[in-house]
Computed example of a mutant assay.
Amino acid sequence: MEGMTVSHENVVDVSTLSFEQARDELVRVVAELEQGAPTLEESLALWERGEALAARCEDWLLGAKRRLDAARTSATGQEQ
């Protein structure tokens, strides 16, 4: 579990992450949770970070869907 433990000093604000950054970190968090964190406190911190990362990814995907829907509506309106 070297180098993967979430430390409160080095945690980047989830709201500043791109979709790819959030997804990649979420993969690392899940892998560490699967290996088992040494303490309950570390497990809880990882779980909370994972939840925040998953929410960030979902926000990005919903935003992308809204943009696609808007583009489709715009394209459909132009064709008529």
Rank of each mutant, 00 (worst) to 15 (best):
T16K: 10
R23Y: 14
E32R: 14
H8S: 12
D24G: 04
Q80Y: 14
E20N: 08
G50E: 02
A52P: 02
V14S: 06
E51W: 08
L26Y: 05
E51L: 11
S74G: 07
M1D: 04
L53T: 04
E41G: 08
Q78L: 15
E42D: 13
L17F: 04
L68N: 11
G63I: 01
V11A: 15
L62N: 10
L46F: 06
E48N: 08
E32K: 08
V12A: 06
R66Y: 07
L46D: 04
G50P: 05
A70T: 06
G77Y: 07
K65Q: 12
D13V: 11
L17T: 01
D69M: 07
A55L: 08
A37H: 07
Q21H: 09
S74F: 13
E48T: 03
A37F: 04
E9M: 11
R56N: 03
Q78C: 14
L33P: 01
Q78W: 13
C57F: 02
N10R: 12
R23S: 10
W47N: 11
D24N: 15
D69E: 13
W47G: 06
E32Q: 14
V14Y: 06
A70K: 07
A31T: 13
S43A: 14
T76Y: 08
E51D: 12
D24L: 08
T76D: 08
L40H: 13
E51Q: 13
A64F: 15
L44N: 10
E48I: 03
V12L: 03
T76F: 07
V27A: 09
A75R: 11
A22L: 03
A75H: 09
V29D: 05
V11M: 13
T76W: 08
V6Q: 07
E32Y: 09
A75C: 07
V27S: 11
N10I: 02
T73P: 00
E58M: 15
E42S: 05
Q35V: 03
A52K: 05
V12G: 02
C57L: 01
T73R: 15
Q78F: 12
L61M: 13
S74W: 10
Q80V: 12
A22D: 05
V14K: 05
S74C: 12
R49W: 00
E58P: 02
V30Y: 02
L40A: 13
D13G: 06
G3H: 05
L44K: 09
V11S: 15
L61K: 10
L53F: 03
Q35S: 06
E41K: 15
V29C: 02
A64I: 12
E48M: 04
T16A: 01
T5V: 13
T5R: 09
A71Y: 07
D13F: 09
S18K: 06
V6D: 00
C57A: 00
L62A: 10
R49I: 03
E51S: 14
W60A: 05
E25L: 03
W47M: 12
T39M: 04
R23V: 01
L68R: 08
P38W: 05
H8I: 11
A54P: 05
W47R: 12
L53N: 01
V11C: 13
L44Y: 06
E20L: 13
W60S: 00
E79D: 09
A55N: 07
V29E: 03
E41N: 10
G63E: 02
S15P: 02
S7A: 09
T73S: 11
V29Q: 01
E9W: 11
N10S: 15
V14A: 05
W60K: 00
T39S: 06
E9N: 11
E2Q: 09
L40M: 08
T16P: 00
A55Q: 13
A71G: 08
E79T: 10
